[in-house]
C-alpha cells in the first residue's frame, strides 16, 4: 500500500486517496475547432510511461483536495507531491 504525501495533510495511507489519472491533460479551450482525432486524443490517449509519471490524486477521505504526485510506474517510488493551484512543486531536493 502506497504512502502518499498530501501537500496539505502530510503522509497518509493510499486507502485515504482516490486516483485521478495522468496530470497535465489540459482541456482544450475550444473543443469545437478540434478534429475528431484531436478530440479523441485528448479524451482517450495517455502517455502510459515506463518510469516517472505525473498523476493526479485526491485526498478523498481527508481534506478532499486534488494534488499531483510523481510516481515511478515500475518501482512505485514516489518522488514527491505537488500542489496544482499555484503550480509549485514540493518535491524534496
Amino acid at each position: 500500500m502506497l504512502l502518499i504525501e498530501c501537500p496539505w495533510c502530510g503522509e497518509r495511507a493510499e486507502t485515504e486517496f482516490s486516483y485521478g489519472g495522468e496530470a497535465g491533460i489540459a482541456r482544450p479551450p475550444d473543443p469545437d475547432v478540434l478534429s475528431d482525432a484531436e478530440w479523441a486524443d485528448y479524451l482517450f490517449n495517455r502517455s502510459n510511461p515506463r518510469g516517472a509519471h505525473r498523476e493526479l490524486w485526491n485526498h478523498a477521505q481527508g481534506c478532499r483536495r486534488w494534488f499531483g504526485v510523481e510516481r515511478d510506474t515500475v518501482t512505485y517510488r514516489i518522488a514527491g507531491s505537488f500542489r496544482l493551484s499555484d503550480g509549485s512543486d514540493n518535491r524534496e531536493g
Partner: peptide
C-alpha cells in the same frame, strides 16, 4: 465537480 474546480 471538485476535480474540475481544483485541477482545470
Amino acid at each position: 465537480l471538485e476535480a474540475w474546480l481544483q485541477t482545470e
